[in-house]
Nucleic acid binder design. Structure first.
Lengths: 224, 224
DNA sequence: TTCAAAACAGTACGATCGTATTGTTTTTGC
DNA sequence: GCAAAAACAATACGATCGTACTGTTTTGAA
């Protein structure tokens, strides 16, 4: 529950504290990515971060606190990544979706988050604690999406459902790419997904016309 | 490595043995689905199956043996499910994809398999042991797919890539549906996926013409 | 019938997990 | 400067994990 955000640490103590806090969190993220949720034990995180057991106990009285803190930080980070990616002026839908893979999903941070999300499936207590942040995360995504895109088919639910579909597909692709590494296939699948979804999402404020997409985009024209 | 398939058990001993074998495997699958990979400990499986530690030791000397056996059984089972689903005469692509969700993915068995697949991401030893079966599994899927479907775009790689996309999307949707249960949204996303993919997969042997798909299928016409 | 092997049962052991506990250093408010 | 609190360090403990080990029953071939 320690507020990590902001330039807060005025005193010297809080500076050291939040620095240690960040070291633990970063180490846990790395352990999640490299060893998975089950093997991301406290001892391993301690070794990875180079901190003592007492420090861990002080900042995170229980392991669940650490997991929740990391989950919340990862979700916040992912929102920032998406925001940065959208602040660009180009606004080509296909490029934004492609960036969603390279900059957001195919990332150490997202793989770590995926481990937590998957753990939430069977851990009711964890699910209950992360649920609020997760809901806020989803809402933020959808609110942004509805501002940026309008459905090609006219159905207002289409944007939301398509973006859930994209997220799920990329999520599943992370696992696929990890257990059967085939970079060419992975790239091809991402492109297929984009070719299918992008024509149905039209940019809302036309700073640039950016792909009016009258044609259903047959066989991946290598992007316009 | 005990051959599970076939009507083999001629003797009384082998009958009992394979029965016990199946009980352990089934219990492990249920534990994987309900508690996740990390919490699917031997003790829990023992309680769930109601067998002794000695029996477990006899049939599966190490836990990895159990995991591998279960992974292989689950993959084999999923192949059978797909085969049954394809033997029907209707051959409507959209229906087949829909069945892939309800009969294959949204299933206790597949959730268990997903736990193992996800564990393979970070467990190199497990990945190495399951890799051959996994490769065979993927090949079988793709071979069948290439027999049943032809690409609407002419690109022969399209069928393979689209089916990988479908599998990944449904895989990610399993997690989504578990951590944020919204049955309506889940169904809607599955339908969106089908509406996007089905028009690009044409049935090969036209027992029935079954959806020639000249129109790109705009807003989910509730299935033909 | 006999005997060895398979099948199962139950206990024991070392390792590791998460957490509680106690002690030491550093920082801060007064 | 000083007491209190925060921050960090280090050890200890109970629980659980996976596996090894020893005993008992059942089975199949001779």
């Amino acid at each position: 529950m320690v507020a990590n955000a902001g330039p807060a640490p005025r005193t010297r103590q809080r500076a050291k504290s939040s620095q240690m806090h960040a070291r633990i969190v970063d180490a846990f993220i790395e352990c999640l990515d490299r060893h998975g949720y089950a093997a991301a034990s406290i001892g391993r995180v301690l070794d990875c971060a180079g901190v003592s057991r007492g420090a861990m106990q002080h900042h995170f009285p229980a392991k669940a606190d650490l997991v929740v803190a990391v989950a919340e930080r990862l979700m916040q980070t992912s929102l920032e990544v998406v925001a940065v990616s959208a602040r660009r002026r180009e606004r080509v839908v296909a490029d934004e979706l492609a960036a969603m893979w390279t900059r957001l999903v195919d990332t150490r941070a997202y793989r770590a988050l995926l481990e937590i999300l998957n753990a939430m499936r069977t851990d009711a207590a964890l699910r209950a604690r992360v649920q609020p942040t997760l809901a806020h995360w989803n809402e933020a995504f959808e609110r942004r999406a509805l501002v940026l895109y309008r459905p090609a088919g006219g159905d207002p639910a289409e944007v939301r459902e398509l973006l859930v579909l994209v997220r799920c597909a990329l999520r599943g692709l992370v696992i696929q790419a990890s257990i059967a590494p085939d970079a060419a296939l992975t790239r091809a699948v991402v492109r297929r997904l984009i070719d299918l979804v992008a024509p149905r999402l039209l940019p809302r404020d036309a700073d640039a016309p950016a792909e009016p997409s009258p044609a259903p985009a047959r066989t991946a024209p290598r992007r316009a």
